[in-house]
Design a protein around this nucleic acid. Sequence first.
DNA 1: ATGCAGATGTGATAAATATCACAAATAAAT
DNA 2: ATTTATTTGTGATATTTATCACATCTGCAT
Lengths: 250, 250
Amino acid sequence: MHLYTLEEVNFLTDITKMVAEIGNSGNVCHDCKDISCAAAILNYKELDQVRNNSRESTLKKGEVILHEGSLTSHIIYLKSGLVKEYVKIGGESEQILQIVKDHSYLGLPSLFGDRINHYSYAALEDCRICYIDINVFNSLIRKNGSFGYEILVSTSRDNLNNFNRFLNRSQKKIYGRVADAILYFAKIIYESQKFDLPFSRQEFADLIGVSRESATRVLIKFKAEGIIGLKGRTISIEKMELLEQISQRG
Amino acid sequence: MHLYTLEEVNFLTDITKMVAEIGNSGNVCHDCKDISCAAAILNYKELDQVRNNSRESTLKKGEVILHEGSLTSHIIYLKSGLVKEYVKIGGESEQILQIVKDHSYLGLPSLFGDRINHYSYAALEDCRICYIDINVFNSLIRKNGSFGYEILVSTSRDNLNNFNRFLNRSQKKIYGRVADAILYFAKIIYESQKFDLPFSRQEFADLIGVSRESATRVLIKFKAEGIIGLKGRTISIEKMELLEQISQRG
DNA sequence: ATGCAGATGTGATAAATATCACAAATAAAT
DNA sequence: ATTTATTTGTGATATTTATCACATCTGCAT
């Protein structure tokens, strides 16, 4: 049984008040360029219902959006920016589960599972997010089956992707894992052969589940072998085929 | 892009024919004692639709129900029995993802994700399963939002549980993992302090992601310390608190 | 009972990776 | 620009776990 701190209760109450009093501060969902695939199939009336029970907000890089263990009163939709999903391990270290790109809901499985957030979320870039009242969201799913179906599809895909990454990870040795992470950023997150890591070496290591030192060593070895370019947090893939081989062989 | 072997296509065609020609062979869904939580909220007419497009079947221990990579034409619901969900690794070894208990659907995320089964399923005991036409299932979700909502809840819970087990695993050392697996069987699968493992030491090792030899060694050490009783495949927990401590400490 | 095949247990060794203790390089603050 | 703090890189070592090579056991069929 989870008990809530005063801080948590106040936080939830604040959001609820904010949404109730101020509404969506002029934003109109049906004109929103960042609307989700699922919400795109809602009709005008339904979107208006969302609008009247949601609120947009912005976050600075580094800010925490949700803490694991907290109670859910609002769904969070990421309109723009990049977010890390993670769990804390024994107070100090953390395990990063995935990098969430814009146009995604945060923590839907937690919401439908037991309403307690299982993972934490923090902004890796400045972000714009929408808080949507959980009751409105649930009633839309019940009333509009196609909306529910779309949500089901998106959570299922997410589930498969994450599980797949974890499965791969648990089978591969450290070289394969580092290769995977680089390819993950290049292909899925940034869609570019050259990119800036949005975080430190420690966090890079937390993403692939190895020690910082080991991760560093492998990155430097890849650089020495001309597989990647590496300068600070900037990575460029120089030998894509070789990197993919390393990823596959484990 | 996934291509299908003739064998796979024939298999799918066979099931479709079977269901179309024979129907549910006398079984009536609204009288079914093994109905899923989600299907329990369907009305008479909707259940009749399911009935006319489904078929029950039985499987012997050891038989494979679904192969990873195969195409999905029917949803599979486990009425009774125990099933392992696994993936093959490099032809020889395998990684067991979870043990599926009765009254569960198999592979829903694969179904909604991309219609290709990502995992394999094999019977650990004699099983009864229902094949349900995927189009009927999907149209029920779209037409009856509450049904979709229930499916969403159950896949979300499943997702959280599995992910949680994997997260724990990737953080824990071998003693913690073995303790976890024993507690998993005792608390979740069999709900008893004493139980028979439904498979070999190799499969036990595949479940926790370690080598057979290492798993064996830890089991024997637990026995030597009086934490568990161990005779062949029968395990009894003797010192629950200690076992839970080992599980938590990792 | 006898023999056989698969499953299980055991020791020795090798491989992979974490940890520790610093040094060097960057970034941030004054 | 200088100091301070944080991040990153590096070598030596310790730990953990896999692998290999067999021995032993168990259940099953003859």
